[in-house]
Computed example of a mutant assay.
Amino acid sequence: MPVTNDDIAKTIRAHLDAHPEDAESLAPLLEAARGSDAPLASRTTTPGHVTCGVVAVTSDRQVLQIRHRSLNRWLLPGGHIEPDDASLLDAALRELAEETGIPRAWANPALERPVDVDAHVIPPNPAKREPEHIHYDLRFLLAIDPPAGNANVALQLEEVADYRWAPLTELPGRLSDRTRANLLARP
Rank of each mutant, 00 (worst) to 15 (best):
M1V: 09
V3T: 08
D6A: 14
D7E: 14
I8G: 00
I8L: 04
A9Q: 06
T11N: 11
I12N: 00
A14E: 08
A14Q: 12
L16Y: 09
D17V: 15
D17C: 07
A18R: 13
A18E: 11
H19R: 07
D22V: 03
A27W: 07
P28I: 02
L29Y: 02
E31G: 09
E31A: 13
A32R: 07
A38H: 10
P39W: 03
A41V: 03
S42Q: 11
R43T: 06
G48A: 05
G48Q: 12
C52H: 05
V54P: 01
V55Q: 10
A56R: 03
V57F: 03
T58Y: 05
Q62E: 14
R67Y: 11
H68R: 10
L71S: 10
N72P: 04
R73A: 08
P77E: 08
P77Y: 01
E82S: 07
D85V: 09
D85L: 03
S87D: 14
L88Y: 01
L88H: 09
L89M: 15
D90W: 05
A92K: 01
L93N: 00
R94F: 06
E98I: 15
I102K: 00
A105R: 11
P109F: 07
P109G: 12
A110D: 03
E112L: 15
V115Q: 00
D116E: 10
D116Y: 08
H120R: 08
V121K: 13
P123E: 12
P126C: 04
P126Q: 09
A127S: 12
P131Q: 12
P131A: 13
H133E: 11
H135D: 04
D137P: 00
R139S: 03
R139E: 06
I144N: 00
D145T: 10
P146M: 11
P147Q: 02
P147W: 02
G149T: 12
A151F: 04
A151S: 11
A151H: 14
A154W: 06
L155R: 05
E158A: 14
E158I: 11
E158K: 14
V160M: 10
V160F: 06
V160N: 06
V160Q: 11
D162S: 13
Y163R: 01
R164T: 10
W165I: 11
A166H: 03
A166E: 12
A166N: 09
L171F: 03
P172C: 02
G173C: 01
G173L: 15
R174D: 10
L175N: 02
L175M: 12
L175Q: 05
S176N: 12
D177P: 00
R178F: 07
T179N: 01
R180S: 12
A181I: 01
N182V: 03
L183V: 02
L183K: 01
A185Y: 07
P187I: 09
P187W: 05
